[in-house]
Amino acid sequence: MDFLRPGTWEEALAAKAEHPSAVPLAGGTDVMVEINFDHRRPEYLLDLNRIGDLYEWEVGERDVRLGASVPYTRIMENLRGPLPGLALAAHTVGSPQIRNRGSVGGNLGAASPAGDSHPALLAAGAEVEAESVRGTRLIPVERFYTGVKRNALEPDELIRAVRVRKADGPQQFAKVGTRNAMVIAVCAFGLALHPRARAVRTGIGSAAPTPLRARAAEEFLDAALAEGGFWDSGRDLPPSLVRQFGELAAGSCNPIDDVRGSARYRRHAVGVMARRTLGWAWDAYRGSERTTRCA
């Protein structure tokens, strides 16, 4: 095993081009577990800790450009405003120690269906900035997950950043685990209201081979909200509408039975979380609407 320690992003790209089998290592919260337990013996470890750029973020007009290695703790502390869903998701990751090391870039690189940031990214809208010596490309996050622990990166590519859409409305995130802290998702659900686009976006984690959006639920809700004039009125959502949204979200799942939970439970729980997160987000939207109108 070789340990590559590029000092700059350019050096990292060059190293990855030269050794496409090199495994990028940032927080180590996935890769080191695999090494410690003898599940993986990569030829090269590509340490990204020295590349300061990866730990920075820029809040732009439309997006937050989040460096691939920005730890979850920084997201919770500094980006709760523009990225509320991701900040909530970040807070559910592992433990304080893990949140100090783990990052969205690492979550994307591992592409585990149980990764906590995926539902929040899907709901907010995001592109993965993949780069190689050949150039940069932006991959919409929906297309980034290609299978269980597989992603759309080419062998010579590294994740430079994630461009996450800034919130223009309330966002929520919920995750089911059988412990109250430090737990891998049995399943998870992210939801973002996009009042400007008059759209709702969602993300489901750990209930299908890849993280995915509950498209049918989104489309149903978009139409129902438009039809009922809810965006303007800020009225209470009828329980039947919320229920149907939950059912459709559950219907988008394609879960498995495993040691963490049954497929039936996952589907059920996604439905419940979809209803609840919609309720919380809508309450927040109504609250802000009222405030705006009063002002």
């Binding site: 995130f173 919920a174 089911v176 685990g177 109250n180 998702a185 609840r276 309720g279």
Partner: peptide, 11 residues
């Protein structure tokens, strides 16, 4: 129940 995973606010 659910703790930091934010699954319920009392519901």
């Amino acid at each position: 129940p659910g703790g930091l995973s934010n699954t319920t606010h009392g519901e």
